[in-house]
């Protein structure tokens, strides 16, 4: 940590960022707030309805279900992706050609457009033309992600694990590489077991990146839209309809602007709360160091 100089002129350096983000963030946010208290038919026919939409949204069972589903989904993928990511990071070579190659290969899923990720799994999971679907059918499981909710969940979770474990893996890998060689030498002299090395040398060093990795994964999975939309369309029924998707359905599909706006705000507040809790944790962790 370097000592920073107090200088309010620094605001001028931040100003461009502020303007460009404010344009795309504050104006839309204000508009959403405006929408959320009105019944809008067109820009000239609108009525002030107060908190009616909020009442409707807060008591809407579809949204409660989507929210519960969302939490289950986010926690499931965190439980799978974090340990798996750590394992992959531990196995990655640290030097030479192999290291670069492994790095590039592991990073590939992160660079695929999200709808293509959906498409890949849509194809891969089909029993007639996809390897995974055919494999499941051949080992005697009646697998069909478009009609069976459990299969749909399995596929969506699998897709997310496939898609995002690399992020955790790369974060941990970089964290591991920042551990000085001396630590390992000391451990070898002490004849420390593999587990002890992991528990007392590697894990503490990983704590920082892991918290950030979990924050990112939680947030990104909390706003997941494109991949399940392409893969299952939220179905069968509403089995894989998560928050973003029910929001888009309401806003674009049914054009219920008012309720959709109220929903957006509730959604945004939840995000803001979780984000703040994580951010405060991370900042306090760095302060303690």
């Amino acid at each position: 940590m370097q000592i920073k100089v107090e200088n309010n002129k620094a605001w001028f350096l931040v100003l461009p960022v502020f303007i460009i983000v404010a344009f795309s963030a504050i104006i839309p946010l204000m508009t959403v707030v405006n929408y959320s208290v009105q019944d809008i038919f067109d820009p000239y026919t609108r009525y002030f309805v107060g908190t009616e939409w909020f009442e409707q949204v807060m008591q809407d069972s579809r949204l409660h279900e989507a929210l519960i589903r969302q939490f289950i989904f986010s926690f499931t993928i965190l439980i799978i992706e974090v340990p798996l990511g750590i394992c992959v990071a531990l196995m990655m070579p640290t030097k030479g050609r192999g290291a670069s190659l492994a790095l590039i290969l592991v990073a590939i899923p992160l660079l695929i457009p999200w709808n293509v990720v959906g498409t890949i799994w849509q194809i891969f999971g089909r029993a007639d033309i996809g390897l995974f679907g055919a494999f499941m059918t051949n080992i005697g499981i009646d697998y069909n992600y478009s009609s069976n909710p459990i299969d749909a969940w399995l596929t969506v979770v699998l897709m997310d694990v496939w898609h995002w474990t690399p992020l955790i893996a790369l974060l941990c890998y970089s964290g591991l590489r920042s551990i000085p060689e001396v630590y390992y030498q000391a451990a070898r002299i002490d004849q420390a077991s593999r587990w002890a090395v992991f528990r007392y040398i590697q894990l503490p060093k990983l704590a920082n990146v892991l918290v950030i990795g979990m924050l990112l994964r939680f947030m990104d999975s909390f706003m997941i839209y494109t991949e399940p939309f392409v893969l299952t369309g939220g179905g069968p029924g509403t089995a894989t309809t998560f928050l973003s998707q029910s929001l888009v359905q309401q806003a674009i599909g049914q054009f219920d602007i008012g309720p959709a706006a109220a929903f957006s705000l509730v959604y945004f507040l939840i995000i803001l709360l979780v984000c703040w809790v994580f951010y405060t944790t991370i900042m306090n962790m760095q302060k303690d160091k």
């Binding site: 946010l29 929408y35 973003s244 929001l247 806003a251 945004f268």
Partner: peptide, 9 residues
Amino acid sequence: APPAVFLLP
């Protein structure tokens, strides 16, 4: 922030 929130505006 989820892009879906800002979609309409």
